[in-house]
Every structure is written in structure tokens, then in C-alpha cells.
Design a protein around this nucleic acid. Structure first.
Lengths: 126, 126
DNA sequence: GCATTACTTAACCTAAAGGTTAAGTATATA
DNA sequence: TATATACTTAACCTTTAGGTTAAGTAATGC
């Protein structure tokens, strides 16, 4: 199944370093396709495909100005990524003990989460 | 070229909704592969492959306890994603005019003191 | 009208992603 | 030792990703 949910599309679009470089370039301003091609050893059709992927993910929009097709970054999907990853912030900001405490609090709050692990805390991180 | 940079690996791993669901499950605590399989209509080998992708991206680690292979979330790559996306925060938090000003400041900063705002706004967003 | 510039689309190729079933491996237990 | 449980690996299949070259389209300018 292609799973066309937008977060998957966004992550897939961001998984290519060429496309991230294009976004970085667009962060400093709208520009043409030919200009976007310049840094890469890649044919223009290849870049055109990358742009189509970025566009489908909503990460850029394309206009028309004479024979140029100026590309502009669109940040909404990036905001969604930031929102998604934010829910994991605790995992890299808190110490392990704080984290484990937090998880215990969550599970306690849940009432009776399926705690099928018998030995409880065998795997202590060094 | 496979481009094995870690950010690309991380984004690619996160581009699949099954894998994001697995991470979400692991956020509430370490668990077994069989347990991770339960919510999905998918064979265990398929889940096993997903876990391998997550492991290669550094998003999980796997232990051994008797015949179980407990999986644990690892947040470092998520922190990297948060760091990467952070550089685009301005694009969704500021108004267009504020943004354009900011970009002009950046470009001016390459040389001397920030000073004026040029006209140059042909592409005004609706 | 015709050439030039700036693209996009089509056709093709190879490799990788994501699923399957079947077979293999590690550990616990009767 | 044999059997069950919990996986992983192998072999295979189909679809998609990412690149190529060649041809098509849109606007400008002589």
C-alpha cells in the first residue's frame, strides 16, 4: 500500500540529500530550476523530478514568470515534522532515570497497561 | 548512490507509518517483537524487517532476554531531526514580511552592518 | 516564423523498498 | 532429547525511487 498520508510523504521527500540541499537553497530565497541545478552533477530532468516530489509533499510551490518556473519553499510540512518530533523531546532531554520515572507515571496513570514483562527492570542502561 | 548519511537514513526510516507506529509504541516502554506485531495485519518477518530499518537508523536498539528480543527506542536520531528542522522554524513562525527582512539581514551579514530594506518584492504571497 | 532559453514529459533502466511464504536459529521447558 | 516459542534469514515477487537520454512544450526575442 502506498500510504499517502502527508507525514510519510514529507519524510520520504526529506530522505534525499539532494532535496534537502534544494530546500536549503530555497531558504535563502525563491529561484529558478536552472539555478537549483547548478550545484549538482545531475541532469535537469533529475532535478525536475526532485522538485515534483517536493511539490507533492507540499514543501515547495512553483510559479511562472516568463520562461522561468520560480520555486519557493513552503514551511507547513516542516512545521508538521517539528510537531511530530516534538513529542519525543523528553527522550533526548531527560536522563534515563527521569525518563523511566516518567514512563512509570504514564503507566500508573493508565491504570493497568499491559505490563507483560515479569522481571521489571533488568535492562539498565550503562 | 545509496547516500548513507545518517539524516537520510533517519528520514527514510520515519517515512513509513508502520515504523512510526512502532516508535510510538516503544515510547511507552520496551517490548518484544511479537508484542510490536500485534496491532498490524502484517507477517512477523515484515515487522522484523521494519525493526532492522529502525535499528540501522539508530532509532532503536535490541537486546536479548531468553527467547525474546526486547526493543527500545533511541532518541539521538530524533534529536538530530529536531535540530535539522529547527533551522526552518522562522518560515512557519514569522509573517512573510518579517521573513523577508530576516533573509535580507542574513545576506547583509555576509558583508557589513545590516541597514536597509530593498524594494524587490515582486512575488508577494496572497 | 524561427531560433533560443527554460523547462517538463516520456521511455527506459537498475536498484531498493516492502510485502509474502518457507526454512533456519536460539532459548526454555517437559 | 524432543518440542514449543520467538524470533531471523532466505528466496521470491511487485512496486517505487532515482537516474539517464531524447523528445515535447512554453515563453522571449530577432
Amino acid at each position: 500500500m502506498p500510504t499517502s498520508d502527508s507525514l510519510s510523504n514529507t519524510f520520504a521527500a526529506l530522505a534525499d540529500p539532494t532535496r534537502r540541499a534544494i530546500l536549503a537553497r530555497l531558504a535563502s530565497g525563491e529561484t529558478s530550476v536552472t539555478e537549483l541545478c547548478r550545484p549538482f552533477e545531475m541532469s535537469m530532468p533529475a532535478i525536475s523530478k526532485h522538485l515534483k516530489v517536493l511539490e507533492r509533499a507540499g514543501l515547495i510551490t512553483r510559479g511562472r514568470e516568463a520562461q522561468w518556473r520560480p520555486c519557493r519553499i513552503e514551511a507547513a510540512p516542516l512545521r508538521d515534522v517539528a510537531g511530530w518530533v516534538e513529542q519525543y523531546r523528553q527522550f533526548w532531554e531527560q536522563s534515563f532515570d527521569r525518563l523511566e520515572l516518567h514512563l512509570q507515571e504514564i503507566q500508573a496513570a493508565g491504570g493497568e497497561a499491559a505490563d507483560k514483562k515479569k522481571g521489571a527492570k533488568k535492562h539498565v542502561r550503562n
